[in-house]
Design a protein around this nucleic acid. Sequence first.
DNA 1: AAGTTCGCCAACCGCCAATAG
DNA 2: ACTATTGGCGGTTGGCGAACT
Length: 286
Amino acid sequence: MGRSPCCSKEGLNRGAWTAIEDKILTQYIMIHGEGKWRQLPKEAGLKRCGKSCRLRWLNYLRPDIKRGNITHDEEELIIRLHKLLGNRWSLIAGRLPGRTDNEIKNYWSTNIGKKAQNGNPNSSTSPNSSQTNPKTQQQTPNPPNKDSSVIRTKATRCTKVILTQEPHQLGTVVAPSMTYDSGTDDKMVAGVGVGPGSGLELLASTSPFDSEGNNPLDFLVDFEMDQSFFSDLLKVDFSEPSCFENTVQDNNVSIRDKSQLSPKSNDNVTVFQPTATLGEAEFDWL
DNA sequence: AAGTTCGCCAACCGCCAATAG
DNA sequence: ACTATTGGCGGTTGGCGAACT
């Protein structure tokens, strides 16, 4: 049984949004908050499908959207993150405050990808030589490449993060989506937590360096999205596995900024339930 | 000046995973 | 356990303005 298409109803507006529609949508979300996208158009009186409303809000109307040109630092970061994550635009966008996945995707297609295709000297930092003009060539998204350090992620939701309350004790990540592929020697599957636009950044996984495959959580990466985020991140060479090794903490993940999370505390444990997305990353190591 | 081509980007489409019932 | 619904993602399309002929 297939799903009923969400936008099949007759009489719905399509195409570009009008200023009035934008205003209605913005006011509705300001009052009622995000979510319930299917009901939103009915309740707000918009002749749009819920998906369209969601997209319009996320990509254009959200107050924290950063308009304007992509800066050089942002471009560098996009290139690096694309090298690391592949076409996981939402994850990349999560690292660029105020930028949307759609914007980054478009920017990549029209700028960076084109540079790479034209044999730009900087193309050494371009992700995949197979990345060419998407309008003229169907591309297979990041085919397995043993020579690449690209992480192929599969986004899943982060359902729970539990932190102990000791100030300096590292928290324990409870990531149900995390799996370990012990069937292959050269692959690993990791959980990648992305904070809601910001602070909490988790990445824990099985170690590619543990030939035994016994410890499911023996390395992590801890990004910090603050003023120094870009400069710090730009220094990281993701192609070097050692960039991960340095942050190994057995079974623990450090969390530097808990402010973006909604704590639900009990006696001994604070349970954070971020609305963020957990990615399930699959690494191909050398 | 008119017609054509190109490039950008907002919006749409289809699929998948999570969640609710 | 199963099915339907919802939200989210990546890929693609198409409208529109700019550049070119």
